[in-house]
């Protein structure tokens, strides 16, 4: 059975079509659905195998990135989201979607008060560049399973720095296998700017919930699915696919297994 993915639209969400393409290339079907349809019950989350909250500037990000859509998630979609996550169905929040998941508390997904956030890049600038990511083999994340080599995908954000309220919060993330992806240097050495493009704590690029079925990440795997999207394809051997596709393929395989 082909999994059907709900790609959540909202005012200012702008990478929904990119996410839909990635899902389709990974063997799923995708529907882009406005948050109002889900909130009013015209569309039910539980009828979908997977949820993606794509990138963008939801509602303008004027109260901090992702804040208003996070309020939507918590107050207008509250039970639907909770049930979807509790069911173990896959959820990916990319860039603004990651910010939404974090600010609504879906990530890191512990019951406590907010202890993790995404805030302004150390450079205080929006930046668009390709980065190298390493999946943490200890992670419980279902989307990064089997991805052993570093992958190369782009980032495009101004508020992507992971910050925590205290050291214990970071320790909980590590100990719980919730650090899914880290920025690494191309040469495998020390990770400084711009390898870590935003100054994220512990070079964290992506987090999952304790169960591993919810992933949030700042980089855009949906923009690294075709070979010719790679920045150096004119000078390197032709790739079969972009590195980001594997995340979607994992998600689709997992959704099929449910």
């Amino acid at each position: 059975m082909t999994p059907n993915v709900l790609i959540l639209r909202a005012p200012g969400i702008n990478r929904d079509a990119d996410a839909a393409l990635a899902c389709e290339l990974a063997g799923a079907t995708a529907e882009r659905v406005h948050v109002n349809r889900v909130a009013e019950g015209a569309v039910r989350l539980c009828d979908y195998a997977m949820l993606i909250i794509p990138g963008g500037f939801s509602y303008g990000d004027h109260l901090g990135a992702g804040k208003l859509l996070a309020v939507d998630l918590a107050h207008r979609l509250g039970d639907q989201i909770r049930d979807f996550v509790a069911d173990g169905r896959p959820v990916i929040g990319i860039c603004n979607g990651f910010q939404v998941l974090v600010k609504s508390g879906v990530l890191p997904g512990d019951a406590g008060p907010p202890s993790v956030t995404l805030t302004e890049n150390c450079s205080a600038r929006f930046e668009c560049r390709w980065v190298h990511l390493q999946a943490d083999p200890q992670s419980r994340c279902i989307f990064t399973r089997g991805i052993e080599l570093p992958i190369e995908i782009p980032i495009a954000h101004g508020e992507g720095r992971i910050a925590v309220s205290d050291d214990a919060a970071l320790e909980r993330l590590r100990a719980g296998g919730q650090v899914a992806l880290r920025y690494v240097a191309e040469d495998g050495g020390a990770v400084n700017y711009p390898a870590n493009p935003n100054g994220s704590l512990d070079n964290i690029a992506g987090l999952c919930n304790p169960q591993g079925n919810v992933l949030g990440l700042m980089p855009h795997p949906e923009n690294a699915v075709l070979p010719q999207q790679h920045p150096r394809w004119t000078r390197e051997p032709w790739r079969i696919a972009g590195d980001g596709l594997a995340l979607f393929q994992n998600a689709v395989a997992y959704a099929k297994s449910l």
Partner: peptide, 10 residues
């Protein structure tokens, strides 16, 4: 150039 998103849309 890097302060402009030039990747969106893929």
């Amino acid at each position: 150039i890097r302060s402009y998103d030039h990747e969106i849309g893929g």
